[in-house]
Design a protein around this nucleic acid. Structure first.
Lengths: 291, 291
DNA sequence: CATGATATCTGACTTTAGTCAGATATTCTC
DNA sequence: GAGAATATCTGACTAAAGTCAGATATCATG
């Protein structure tokens, strides 16, 4: 019996290796080598640029070329030169290719549904999977500047508000807080960042331009699955860089005592506590940072 | 943005596929094809029967034979006929093979340590990995009858007591409870079962023989990572079968109101509530079941 | 102890994956 | 517009994985 951290990690690794192998096996059931199946799936998932498929699947150019040719012969994909650069090629699925892709999707989905349905607490299992996936994909988390009114941004804000409602003693109602109007978080006045892990939004932060001589940091949120990865700091650093770009020389923020991790992070990254600078009912702590 | 259960599962699957692939790549760094590396690792982990290696790695007999021959030529393994059956062969690592196995282990361990050290809350990540692994390995959970004084049994009992201490209002102290002496949970008087998931103990239950005309079910525990898999029911069913074997015609148990999942499970599987039948200070509920 | 089943081995294959050096067409840069 | 860089393609390979039909030795069973 060995229950040290490394043994537990490796038990996990063995378990998922079996699972991955089983999925590969079921893919082979469609009578096509794995390499070709992977290309169909990449194209189906929207990766159409041949060079990008090659990069993602780590394929030699010769091998890629032959896989494309064989899929073309099967009538599953069609290739055309890239509109902007005739050296490149793009691939898209034909109708038959779409059907084949759907069949692969069905295999994957069936495995997922079976496992989830067999578990007595699917949400708990999924939360664990989210956490593990975020940790494994740690280095691939991408920060993107987005419109705060976009779906992804609004999803993050919704999760943020839900969490505040849970953590604040008296709950939280956005309407009582000074809700920054969206345009204050769009260039040139401000900005809004969303962090994506394999296309799942896992964090956000906003820079709100004000009429005063400072800008404010608002809505810093990290998904539970992505905590412990240093993402808050990364978002703040990027936001500060954007603020500098916009000519901001002083940043301020307010926060609540129910968020001690955030407060500790601010203190450790150059923020100093100041007097209350607004009359918002929720915050207990106020910070500023010169840029 | 797609956050339905199946999409979340599949994000997880993509993340671990990358991780598994990366480990395979690092294994190739030792200048040996993956097939051969897998055999070394299987033998190193104690799977010595050639037929069993073949079954686990799903290898054709011809392929297996050639892999063994090439590893023998490299001086990494030695094969001998199986002591009980001269048709079979067993493989073991030579000193050089042990060294090579250790090198593979070091590669795996390094990956594990790196990922764990990068995470801000390693225990939370490991708990998630345990949960996912237990779910994926669901069908491979093995029940073994063991001595309640063995390391594995005592680990389970320790976790069980810790959990009671957390969940009971006034804590829990084994000494105040009627601690069944171990021999009462060993045949022919009783029995003790431990559930293993890939050699990790994830549950237990004891059958305690008494001087009265009934036996008692004691110490039913399921590891947090293995909850929701129907394991409690499986343990109870096996224990009831053993009780019947031992000629027991009536089972009793007591439990505490802080364990509602267990109480619900008893009610759903043929147990009926009865009057208090002992003076143990902890239980609030008493059940029996005729066999 | 004959018969059928089992486990491994050998030889002769095929398929899949991966590598590499040039050929071709296009784009970028000075 | 010449020359370097880029993306793909083709041909000629090698390595690895997988398949399959027998051969051999042993075991299990009546």
């Amino acid at each position: 019996m060995s229950l040290d951290p490394v043994s537990r990690f490796r038990r996990f690794a063995r378990a998922v290796t079996v699972e991955v192998g089983a999925l590969d096996q079921s893919f082979l059931g469609r009578g096509r080598p794995l390499g070709a199946a992977r290309v169909i799936n990449a194209v189906g998932r929207g990766i159409q640029d041949v060079a990008e498929i090659r990069a993602r699947l780590d394929l030699d150019s010769g091998l890629m070329s032959r896989l494309l040719r064989s899929l073309e012969d099967e009538g599953l994909i069609a290739t055309e030169p890239h509109p902007d650069d005739a050296r490149r090629r793009t691939a898209r699925l034909t109708a038959a290719g779409e059907a084949e892709f759907a069949a692969y999707e069905a295999l994957s989905n069936a495995r997922a549904e079976k496992l989830l349905s067999q578990h007595g607490d699917g949400e708990r299992l999924l939360a664990a999977m989210d956490l593990v996936a975020s940790a494994l994909l740690r280095e691939r988390i991408e920060l993107r500047e987005m419109d705060p009114r976009s779906d992804d941004a609004r999803y993050c804000l919704g999760e943020y508000y839900d969490e505040l409602a849970q953590r604040f003693e008296g709950g939280f109602d956005v309407k009582l807080s000074k809700d920054p109007d969206a345009t204050a978080m769009i260039r040139p006045r401000g900005a809004f960042l969303v962090a994506f892990s394999d296309e799942m939004p896992v964090g956000c932060v906003g820079l709100k331009g004000t009429s005063a001589d400072y800008s404010e940091v608002k809505r810093l949120w990290i998904a539970p699955s992505a905590r412990g990865l240093g993402l808050a700091r990364r978002l703040m650093e990027r936001l500060e860089a954007i603020a500098r770009e916009l000519g901001v020389s002083l940043l301020r923020l307010d926060t609540n005592k129910a968020l001690p991790e955030a407060i500790a992070m601010y203190r450790k990254s150059g923020w100093t506590e100041i007097e209350r600078f607004n009359d918002d009912p929720y915050p207990d702590f106020f910070f500023e940072k010169p840029l």
